[in-house]
């Protein structure tokens, strides 16, 4: 069994009267021949790893081997705990959890690729923010991961999910779309609303290039993960308010594919354009070259 489009996913949900999360789990049971319990356990292990990564990352002041990232998670954590933050509690908590995850990733910590390592901060950010602010239990968060995986699965098979293939829109863009849909479903929205949220989130990141300084998954990647969480919450809010994406999600994904295909090579993870090509970006790269092999 496979699901080839968001349209098909929604049809399936409607026919069975099930959520996206349940439809994905059913499909996985059918395709893998494993029991629901085994698959849920496997997904729970991933959620648990996300939690561990956040706990380590949020108190780690050290910098990455390259020296261009690290220490901001602690800063954001202290700020969020102390101040009344402008973005509100949901986004505030998502910010500190996502930055903790993405900084850990840069420091060779253990993360869960969602869908890639570069975009690994977005989903843990929104999930553990819901956990903190709504007391959403672990079992429910795992359902959110199944929702997110269904959306990511459709995107990955119709377009791309890596920066090298389609720019950052494919990486942080896909992760943000997955997160937006997961929030909607966890908040009791319909499958249709979840897909609209994914479309709205993805639309706002269309065209985003992949331009990591010195080719490292640090600048601008870490902060883009953080921004992804706030876009995900805004998109979810819009959709839960009844706002629809005027362009159907499948067409948005197609647009992402077309844009990514036309994107020049310099803006697809080669570190030859965009922020990587700025004066400061180049200086970092030169410093890395000198240090080559010497870390």
């Amino acid at each position: 069994m496979k699901i080839e489009s968001m349209k098909e996913l929604l049809q399936r949900c409607e026919e069975k009267g099930k959520t996206i999360s349940e439809v994905m789990l059913d499909m996985e049971v059918e395709n893998s021949g494993k029991t629901r319990e085994t698959l849920i356990d496997k997904m729970t292990a991933r959620l648990q790893q996300m939690k561990n990564t956040i706990e380590l990352g949020i108190q780690d002041k050290s910098s990455s081997p390259s020296g261009i990232s690290g220490g901001d998670a602690v800063r954001v954590d202290e700020y969020v705990k102390k101040e009344t933050i402008l973005s509100g509690n949901y986004i505030g908590d998502a910010m500190r959890f996502s930055i903790a995850t993405s900084e850990s990733n840069a420091k060779m910590g253990i993360i869960v690729a969602t869908p890639t390592a570069g975009a690994a901060g977005v989903l843990p950010g929104i999930l553990f923010s819901l956990h903190k602010n709504d007391n959403t239990p672990f079992e429910t968060l795992v359902e959110g991961l199944f929702t997110a995986s269904a959306l990511g699965y459709v995107i990955a098979n119709r377009s791309f999910i890596s920066g090298a293939a389609g720019g950052c829109q494919a990486e942080v863009g896909s992760a943000t779309a997955m997160a937006a849909g997961a929030i909607v479903e966890l908040k009791g929205g319909s499958p249709e609303q979840a897909v609209h949220a994914a479309a709205i989130a993805l639309k706002s990141l269309l065209g985003l290039v992949c331009d990591p300084v010195a080719g490292l998954v640090e600048v601008p990647c870490i902060k883009r993960n953080v921004m992804g969480t706030s876009i995900a919450f805004s998109a979810a809010d819009l959709s839960l308010a009844g706002v629809k994406s005027r362009i159907p999600c499948d067409e948005v994904i197609k647009a992402m594919y077309d844009i990514g295909s036309e994107m020049p090579r310099t803006l697809k993870e080669t570190a030859l354009g965009g922020l990587a090509a700025t004066e400061t970006g180049q200086q970092v790269k030169e410093r890395m070259y000198k240090k080559k092999g010497g870390f």
Partner: peptide, 9 residues
């Protein structure tokens, strides 16, 4: 899509 659990970056 959700996974693998892996060492970064």
């Amino acid at each position: 899509i959700i996974g693998p659990i892996m060492v970064g970056p």
